[in-house]
Write a protein that binds this DNA or RNA. Structure first.
Lengths: 348, 348
DNA sequence: CATCAACCTGGGAGCGCTCCCACACTACCT
DNA sequence: AGGTAGTGTGGGAGCGCTCCCAGGTTGATG
């Protein structure tokens, strides 16, 4: 919280004014050149560019931000109530995509981890205090107050994933239902007849979507959806174990399981081994996320891949558009759904 | 690269001046109260605090940064020449620690991914352009020009991990040698007689340290170090496979392997399975990093745990100290080594 | 040759803060 | 009473930029 003295590097760097003096022009003109305004004659532009090069001038972005009332930065917000969520490869991939897309911009990436209500409060103050031009929200829960807060203060924002079927805030999401459906179709296509599913927490929309995809595939194959083949869990390994035990109890002849996450699939696999069921011979297994866990299971796990990095990139593109059209109440809120892909491995 | 117009939220928020007017004091006084200066009478302070509360005043940090010539931000730099390196849980843990430690500060965290020399160039300009007060460098290679660049422009910086035994820049590192030693001692202690090691790329200091730890444990047990039991690899799964095959060829009676990373251990494990060697019955296996991979292997992998999150926290503390004592040429460069811990699982 | 739009250009004003100097005011000593 | 600290306080001067207006130049047009 301190207000300790910290003197930065760079005192003594050339300023706009010095460049202007050297080029024999006014401040305004240099500013126009720097910002690529077309209203500058070629001769002047060349002269300024040379002065910039000679002096090694780099604009002071803090001054620019103050004068122009913008931040040249976007925040990536990661709510992290449960531990380790951030360790999911999902996040790092999104971050990679975001970073890659941002590299072509002169925007900076601010990383904000929000663990407590107090930290959320702090973050809200940052927003008011003008620190960012827009916000990327990763994996918000349905009851997170942040999206609505952002909407209220008219801060451009993009979600990764929807909170519900009628999400009002711009978002980029994976085709969860489609991915789940193709996974289950794959199992049915390989001759499995009793395909169960282990779901995520059903108050999360993403879990609902994957379950919907499961149902759609079952029905498309002309089967009835058997509620006893649907075991809800919570995206954790332990949850996967419990759900698998439950499934074996209720439907001992189950011959395939679609788990809505790789981690739950890993839990299920352990139970199957304990119970002496071979994978894939007795029970075929498919996960979701195509995480590192999937590759390292024995046998390697078939899984639905989301193009997570592309999600990050798309989020940035959508956010930039939002920032651009800000205040323009007529513009539509962009909402994107990215395709998924089934990665086949030994488990199915 | 655009200079497109972006108008931020917050125009119309109260300023210092307005708070001063409301409290019936001067600007300077409000500034002193905000920054916790002791040179303010209690009465005045109370009046100002009340005005701040009534107006909902939040300091504009951009203006503050410009006036005070500091950034109130630190950059976390992640060089990422090879893909996926960032997906290692290592990074996310460090980031968590950094975020946690930074939460008590009014510093912001800037995330910078550097993939190409061009991006490094860009980053160097950022630094000159006054965007950050200090830099956290994660997993730099020995030949990375960044640390020296930072040193030259006197930008406070902290490394995670050393580049060599005589690192000049402040750093926070894990006790790699100690961790490796305890892993090998553990294997010897369980009666194994022929303990091999799969190393990382030996031009990386961290790989050297882990190898040194292996050698120390072997010698401490009164054995000679057999060069044929040392197989260099590159921290990849494929490298782990190759190294394991090589070891089996050279020393078929090997009964334990210490791999300098979990991922390499996973590769080794596959080869052992192919060759019909049971783990741990025929060959005991220990990894390093205690990553998710370790938990999901079959049997679960014994591994050396680094307190990665604490590394992140420590890095921030060291950096703050560096920023504080900046320019003070007499102050010592803080260098920290954090202990590791062996996590025992079924593979040994 | 006058007129006017279109185009460039310089530089004042100002973004919201910190820094610091100067000035009051008190308290305490000669 | 005169000095000498020490303590609070106000406000001018800037930080380095962008914004924008006025003014100058140019070239096409009547």
């Amino acid at each position: 919280m301190a207000g300790t003295r910290r003197r930065g590097v760079g005192r003594g760097r050339p300023t706009l004014e010095e460049v202007a003096a050297r080029a024999g022009v006014g401040r305004g003109t240099v500013s126009r050149v720097i910002n690529g305004s077309p209203r500058v004659s070629d001769r002047t532009r060349t002269a300024v560019e040379q002065a910039v090069a000679e002096l090694g001038y780099v604009p002071n972005r803090v001054a620019r931000a103050l004068a122009a009332n913008r931040a040249d930065a976007v925040a990536l917000v990661i709510p992290e109530p449960e531990t380790r969520l951030f360790a999911e490869p999902y996040f790092s991939d999104v971050i990679c995509g975001v970073g890659a897309e941002l590299a072509d911009t002169d925007l900076q990436l601010l990383l904000t981890l929000i663990r407590t209500p107090k930290e959320r409060q702090r973050f809200a103050e940052y927003l008011s205090a003008h620190r960012v031009d827009g916000v990327l929200l990763v994996s918000v829960h349905a009851d997170d107050p942040l999206p609505d807060l952002l909407e209220r203060i008219e801060m451009p924002a993009v979600l990764s994933g929807r909170r519900s079927a009628h999400e009002s805030v711009p978002y980029v999401d994976s085709d969860n239902a489609g991915g789940a459906q193709s996974a289950v179709e794959h199992l049915l296509g390989r001759g499995r007849t009793t395909v169960a599913t282990i779901t995520g927490p059903l108050d999360m929309y993403v879990a609902q979507c994957r379950l919907d995809g499961y149902r759609a595939a079952i029905r498309a194959a002309g089967q009835e959806v058997d509620p006893d083949l649907i075991a809800p869990a919570d995206f954790t390994e332990e949850g996967g174990r419990r759900a698998m035990r439950e499934l074996l109890r209720r439907r001992p002849h189950v011959d395939a399981v679609f788990a809505a996450s790789d981690v739950m699939a890993a839990g299920a696999r352990q139970v199957l081994r304990e119970e002496g069921r071979r994978v894939p011979d007795d029970v075929a297994l498919v996960g979701f996320d195509n995480s590192a866990v999937a590759r390292h299971m024995d046998p390697p796990l078939t899984s639905v891949r989301q193009n997570t990095e592309e999600m990050g990139r798309a989020m940035v593109r959508v956010l930039l558009e939002e920032i651009e059209t800000q205040g323009d109440r007529t513009s539509k809120r962009p909402q994107l759904v990215l395709p998924t892909e089934l990665v086949r491995r030994g488990s199915s």
